[in-house]
Simulated assay, not measured.
Amino acid sequence: MTAKQGDEQEPNGSESLLTVVVAAGVNLAIAVAKVVAGLISGSAAMLSEAAHSFADTVTELLLVVAVRRGARPADESHPFGHGKSAFFWALMAAGATLVVGAGFSITHGVQTILYGEELGDLRVSYVVLAVAFVLEAVSFLRAVHQIRGEARRWRISPRDYVGFTADTAVKAVLFEDAAALAGILVAAGGLLGYQLTGSAVFDGAASVLIGLLLLGVALSLIRANASLLIGQAAPVMLRDAIGAELDARPEVVETVELLTMMLGPNDILVAAKVDFHHQYTGDRLEEAADRVERAITGKWPEVSHVFLDPTPGHAARRRIAEADGTS
């Protein structure tokens, strides 16, 4: 037995798309400015920051693809929809951050530490970093705003929401913008260290640290998306709530088994073996199952598919065993 996907999923997907588009536009503008500043100053940290912003731009373009492809409706070839394609493209985006951003920054930073460098005028670099910090903060606050709104809807803290959400697009923007803000401060520290000491080690070390920040973000997002692609269950909080709803229904004796899977960022499959009261047979059983299904999808619009399998519970199995023993 199945239910149609809830209408409330589309607005959340649209909001995620807006969050990603804002982040992509901001990062592209910042990347160009950082390249110019990096070429003028010759700073490894500035060029690493430029690579960081270009990597973020590529990442967010892939996340746009993820959001749009994941929102495509179900068809004959994909009866459960295309939600998992969002996880695939988000995984590719995390890989881009790992290769383009972290790889370049660490490699360039190590070369600077080993072979040294002489920096030029750093005033442009400081201005670009200051403007970049403001723009990255705007993108970051946009992601935080969405996360707070979703957290209120689930009645949990924003931190807990970030931990369990399958909306990897907005999670990626949040993590990458946070890393970008930290990276800008690190780059500024590297430039200042060079100015105070004349040693390129500070600039190179800043570049390496920026790469390590990107590495941490990329690995975290790769792990999250890989788990979702494999077939991750719905958050424990939601599974427990659905189980409690099933057990509380007057038609149900007990829930024998409850399975869930994330089909997309806001698309959940529920499959349950349920022991219905013995008076529900034939048409009455179908009507009872339909009521239970509608109760679940009405309370959680994210649940797009519900499969209920009438299964004898412990008490029913004991009755069957006793009846078999006396016959």
Rank of each mutant, 00 (worst) to 15 (best):
T2I: 03
T2Q: 01
G6F: 00
E8T: 00
Q9R: 00
G13P: 00
G13K: 03
S14K: 05
L17M: 05
L17P: 04
V21N: 06
A24Y: 12
G25P: 09
V26A: 14
N27V: 11
N27R: 13
A31H: 04
V32Y: 05
V35H: 06
V36L: 12
A37M: 06
A37W: 01
G38Y: 02
L39A: 07
G42E: 11
M46S: 09
L47N: 15
E49G: 15
F54L: 10
A55Q: 12
A55L: 15
D56G: 14
T57V: 13
L61H: 15
L62N: 15
V65A: 14
V67D: 13
V67A: 10
R69G: 07
A71L: 02
R72L: 07
E76S: 14
G81P: 04
H82G: 10
F88L: 13
M92K: 06
A93K: 13
G95I: 12
A96L: 13
G103F: 15
I106V: 09
T107K: 11
V110E: 06
G120F: 14
D121G: 15
V124E: 12
Y126Q: 10
V128N: 06
S139Y: 08
Q146V: 13
I147M: 12
R148N: 09
R148Q: 11
R152S: 06
S157T: 04
P158E: 12
P158N: 12
T165W: 01
A172C: 11
A172S: 14
L174T: 07
D177P: 15
L181Y: 15
G183E: 07
G183V: 10
V186C: 02
G193V: 04
G198V: 11
G198Y: 08
D203I: 02
A205M: 09
A206F: 01
G211L: 02
L212C: 03
L214V: 13
S220K: 09
S227C: 05
L228N: 03
L228R: 06
A233L: 06
L238T: 04
A241P: 01
I242A: 00
A244P: 08
D247P: 09
A248R: 09
R249S: 14
E251W: 01
V253I: 12
E254P: 06
L258R: 00
L258G: 03
N266F: 01
N266W: 02
V270P: 01
A272E: 12
V274C: 07
V274Q: 10
D275H: 11
F276S: 10
F276R: 06
H278S: 10
L285H: 05
L285S: 00
E287G: 05
A288I: 03
R294C: 01
R294M: 01
R294Y: 05
I296E: 00
P301A: 02
V303F: 07
V303H: 01
F307C: 01
L308P: 07
L308I: 08
L308H: 09
P310H: 04
G313E: 11
A315S: 08
E322N: 08
A323C: 08
A323K: 12
